[in-house]
Nucleic acid binder design. Structure first.
Lengths: 189, 189
DNA sequence: CTGTAATTTCAGTAAATACTGAAAATTCAG
DNA sequence: CTGAATTTTCAGTATTTACTGAAATTACAG
């Protein structure tokens, strides 16, 4: 991290690099992305290389990674060979891409693995128990995925509306419960 | 991974080790946890050591890690020195712990970092733009955190009820919209 | 208490991951 | 087309992360 970044932007870039690394994303790639998100104008590979003080080839690999996640868009300027990169202008769009990509890469394969194990016939009591846990996992993950997909349908504007409702989700769930659900006890603690 | 695991359980353990490593959790620790979750009876460190074919000290460190995440409970048997470990019996409880821990460890510090950067006075147009993006990030993360906290209040039984509703969350949100929201357009796409 | 069974610690090492520089490949302005 | 600008690749290296074995510590049955 050598050149040109103001302390404010540098702090943010460093923090998200750190966060990335805790969530299984290469630290430098995390920094690159933070930089792109915080930058109004698209950046070229050299901009990033210089801003983060890394090698040009590292930048190239990181950008490739970000492209494979579809987190970054490529742009050309007329009459210039150089390529410029930019992040979506809306953070909710970014979140949606992240969720979607992780679903494709990790969640779906996990569900598939679990399903394959669940169709096997348990060889003994241990496997029977294990399968029961796997069934619960599968169910939970599938449910969370469904929820997530519903929520992802929201656009940024409507998300904002929900935001303003603050923590009234509990009420919404209660409402749903009363209108659709069976007559069980409480829905929110 | 040497001894005693049936192919079915081994597949699952390996898969979750892999998943762990993609989400920033040590592969071996992931395997250890899968093993504990799939096991009806509590396991002692030697059981894990043997099942995964790792060193006793590695097991000790992994267990320490799992304890620090509060994902695992320690038990003693009367008249025995040995310590036994078990995972919560309900996968939703596990998910809640994971969410809560990641919030404490990563989300809260991120929100705090963002807030600190947001109270600074931007030094130029670039910083002004960057701050705007940070504001959006903060808002989004905070909102997701709030939602998550609400949903976490659900107990397993009520979660199950929601599950049965399947993907009708869209309807629920629409309902909320009609009942609480302003008269804007659509809520779900 | 004491001895031993068990756990933890940690320095050293192994393995995995990330990064670099140089060379090859690509792209497009001229 | 051509060649200079730019990007990509990749073998080698550096860094980080994970793991081990041996020694130290702890805990408790007797």
């Amino acid at each position: 991290m050598s050149e040109k970044l103001t302390p404010m932007i540098q702090s943010c870039v460093l923090h998200f690099g750190e966060m990335g690394s805790r969530w299984g994303i290469n630290r430098t790639v995390g920094q690159m992305y933070a930089l792109l998100v915080l930058s109004k104008e698209p950046l070229c590979a050299d901009d990033i290389t210089e801003a983060l003080g890394i090698s040009r080839s590292n930048t190239s690999m990181g950008l490739k990674e970000l492209m494979s996640w579809e987190l970054v868009k490529l742009q050309h300027r007329p009459g210039e060979r150089k390529e410029f990169y930019s992040a979506p202008g809306d953070v909710w769009d970014i979140a949606k891409i992240l969720i979607e990509q992780r679903r494709k890469r990790e969640i779906d394969p996990t569900l598939s693995t679990l399903r394959n194990l669940l169709i096997e016939t348990p060889a003994n009591a241990d496997e029977e128990y294990a399968q029961e846990r796997m069934r619960e996992m599968h169910e939970l993950i599938e449910m969370i995925t469904l929820w997530t997909q519903e929520i992802q349908r929201l656009d940024s504007a409507n998300l904002g509306k929900l935001l303003k409702l603050g923590s009234s989700i509990g009420k919404v769930l209660d409402m749903k419960d009363r209108l659709l659900g069976s007559g069980k006890k409480e829905t929110t603690k």
